[in-house]
C-alpha cells in the first residue's frame, strides 16, 4: 500500500486498505439511506491520526484542533476509538466553516462529545447523518453561553444562517430532527478526494467476493499478514461483524 501524505503532513488512507475489522466499521463507499429515503455513499478517504498527542497538536484551523472532532464516548465502537484513528478528509471543510462561526461570534466554539465525526458503527449514527461524513458539528457552548434553551439556540442559529447558505442548522425543538441542547450545523454529504489521491484505482466495495482467493489476493496486495483462512468466506465474516457492531 503506497503511503500518501497530505499537505498537512497527515497520512491519507483509502479505507478499502484498512484491516477488515476497521473496514467493516467505517464501511467506505457503502450506500446509506437517509431519513427521507435518499441514499448517500459513505466517505472513502480518511486522515490517519497516529496518536492522542498528534490529535491534540494538529490544528485544522487557527482555533480548532483535530481532537475536537474526535471527541466520542463509549457509544462509538471501541476499535474506532483506538489510535491510529481515522477521520474523513471532509473534516477540514467543516472546520473551515466553524472557524468562520468563531470569527463571527468572537468567542470560542465548543463541540460536544459525539458532536464531531461519528463512524457508521456509532450508536447515535442513525440513518445517514452527516456526522458520518465528518461534515456536521454539534456545538454545546459558545463563549460562556451553554446552548440549552430556545433563546440561545435560535440566536446562534440566526448567526449561522446569516453567515453562509452552505450550512444547514437544525431548528430548536425536542423532536427527532430538532435540537434542544446544542446547535447542529452540517454541510450535507460532502466527500473529499484529496488532490494526492489518484482516482484511476477504481476498486469499489466488495462485500461478497465470489472466491476466498480474491480476499487473499487483496490481502497480499495490501500487506496483510497471511493467516489460514476460515472455511467461511471472509466477506461473510465481515458482514457478520458489521451486524454485531451495530447491535451493540
Amino acid at each position: 500500500m503506497a503511503e500518501i501524505e497530505s499537505e498537512s503532513g497527515l497520512k491519507i488512507v483509502d479505507a478499502f486498505d484498512l484491516d477488515p475489522e476497521l473496514r467493516a466499521l467505517l464501511r467506505p463507499g457503502e450506500l446509506v439511506e437517509g431519513i427521507r429515503g435518499q441514499y448517500h455513499h459513505l466517505p472513502r478517504y480518511f486522515y490517519e491520526i497516529p496518536s492522542r498527542e498528534a490529535a491534540r497538536e494538529i490544528r485544522v484551523t487557527p482555533h480548532f484542533g483535530l481532537n475536537e472532532f474526535l471527541l466520542v464516548d463509549l457509544k462509538e465502537a471501541a476499535r474506532v476509538r483506538a489510535f491510529p484513528r481515522y477521520v474523513p478528509c471532509a473534516i477540514r471543510i467543516a472546520a473551515f466553516y466553524l472557524e468562520r462561526l468563531r470569527e463571527a461570534t468572537g468567542a470560542p466554539v465548543h463541540l460536544a462529545v459525539n458532536g464531531g465525526y461519528r463512524s457508521p458503527a456509532h450508536k447515535l449514527s442513525v440513518a445517514a447523518t452527516p456526522h458520518m461524513w465528518g461534515t456536521a458539528a454539534d456545538v454545546y457552548k459558545i463563549g460562556t453561553v451553554v446552548l440549552r434553551d430556545r433563546a440561545s439556540i435560535e440566536t446562534y442559529n440566526r448567526v449561522i444562517e446569516d453567515l453562509t447558505d452552505d450550512l444547514y442548522v437544525m431548528p430548536y425543538g425536542h423532536e427527532i430532527g430538532k435540537a434542544d441542547d446544542h446547535i447542529h450545523v452540517d454541510l450535507g454529504y460532502v466527500t473529499v478526494v484529496p488532490r494526492e489521491i489518484s482516482e484511476d484505482r477504481l476498486e469499489g466495495p466488495q462485500d461478497k467476493p465470489r472466491f476466498a482467493f480474491e480476499e487473499r489476493r487483496r490481502g497480499d496486495r495490501r500487506g496483510w499478514p497471511r493467516e489460514p483462512l476460515p472455511e467461511v468466506l471472509p466477506a461473510a465474516a465481515h458482514a457478520g461483524s458489521t451486524r454485531s457492531e451495530s447491535q451493540k
Binding site: V72, L74, V113, D180
Partner: peptide, 13 residues
C-alpha cells in the same frame, strides 16, 4: 463488557 475508565458524555437529555 464495560471498562470503568470508559468515557461517558455528560448530557442532560
Amino acid at each position: 463488557e464495560l471498562a470503568l475508565e470508559e468515557p461517558v458524555h455528560v448530557r442532560n437529555k
